[in-house]
Amino acid sequence: MHKWLLPLLGSLWLAGCSDNNWRTTDVSEFMPDLDFELVDENGRDVSAEDYLGKNTILYFGYTHCPDVCPITLAGLATAIRKVDAEVRDDIQVLFVSVDPGRDTPDVMKRYTNYFGPQFIGLTGSTAQIDELTNRYRITYEYGDKDEEGNYDVSHSSAAFAFNKQGEAEFMIRDSDPTANVVADLSRLAKRG
């Protein structure tokens, strides 16, 4: 047997036994735990601790988004509908607005209700949003206002999945097939 073959087979075996073989992107080694202080869609002050005990998907966007946000959230809703019922009940999607000037708690609640009961809108002050987006390396930028005062917000579109203890596990991109997202959400739930 070649002397390079044994280490290769060993590393392949270890990779196959790894607990973090996500079909999406593993971020467990470099993303921080879930941590924030914001306002929920019911106007209550909340922190990350209020959402521990369920698997959590964290997504940043805004309700006036013409394309990326509704497509991403609809994709997450589709994936959640495809997991087993007991898994579905153990998932929450925290939709954090990067446009707190327009996205009041009431606006957030109406928006998240469209996607399903697992979706929860969060907002806060610009300082709170900036602290959280910096924590997860999310970028956003406001466009110029038009004559009516409307504007777009460019922002990152990845969603982050955390386990029940609030530890980062994997990242979901728009390009990830729904089947991969479903498989990873199911696997995350089984890990407890």
Rank of each mutant, 00 (worst) to 15 (best):
residue 27 V to S: 05
residue 27 V to T: 00
residue 27 V to A: 04
residue 28 S to P: 05
residue 29 E to S: 13
residue 31 M to L: 14
residue 33 D to T: 15
residue 34 L to P: 07
residue 34 L to F: 10
residue 35 D to T: 09
residue 36 F to G: 03
residue 36 F to L: 02
residue 37 E to R: 15
residue 37 E to N: 13
residue 37 E to V: 12
residue 39 V to I: 08
residue 41 E to N: 10
residue 41 E to M: 08
residue 43 G to N: 12
residue 44 R to G: 08
residue 47 S to K: 10
residue 48 A to G: 03
residue 48 A to R: 06
residue 51 Y to W: 09
residue 54 K to N: 15
residue 54 K to Y: 14
residue 56 T to D: 05
residue 56 T to F: 00
residue 57 I to G: 04
residue 57 I to E: 01
residue 61 G to L: 02
residue 63 T to P: 02
residue 66 P to A: 13
residue 67 D to W: 07
residue 67 D to I: 07
residue 69 C to T: 11
residue 69 C to M: 14
residue 71 I to F: 08
residue 71 I to T: 15
residue 72 T to S: 08
residue 75 G to N: 14
residue 75 G to T: 10
residue 75 G to K: 11
residue 76 L to F: 10
residue 77 A to G: 12
residue 78 T to C: 12
residue 80 I to F: 01
residue 81 R to F: 04
residue 83 V to Y: 12
residue 83 V to D: 14
residue 84 D to Q: 13
residue 84 D to S: 13
residue 86 E to G: 06
residue 88 R to K: 14
residue 90 D to R: 15
residue 91 I to R: 04
residue 93 V to R: 08
residue 94 L to G: 04
residue 95 F to K: 02
residue 97 S to R: 05
residue 97 S to A: 05
residue 98 V to H: 06
residue 98 V to R: 01
residue 99 D to M: 03
residue 100 P to R: 12
residue 106 D to M: 14
residue 109 K to S: 11
residue 110 R to L: 12
residue 111 Y to A: 03
residue 112 T to D: 02
residue 113 N to C: 00
residue 114 Y to F: 15
residue 115 F to D: 10
residue 117 P to K: 08
residue 118 Q to F: 05
residue 119 F to Q: 01
residue 124 G to V: 07
residue 125 S to R: 04
residue 126 T to L: 15
residue 126 T to Q: 15
residue 128 Q to S: 03
residue 131 E to T: 04
residue 134 N to G: 11
residue 137 R to Q: 13
residue 138 I to S: 03
residue 138 I to G: 06
residue 139 T to C: 11
residue 139 T to G: 13
residue 139 T to N: 14
residue 140 Y to A: 01
residue 141 E to A: 00
residue 142 Y to V: 10
residue 143 G to F: 12
residue 145 K to D: 05
residue 147 E to M: 07
residue 149 G to D: 11
residue 151 Y to Q: 04
residue 153 V to F: 06
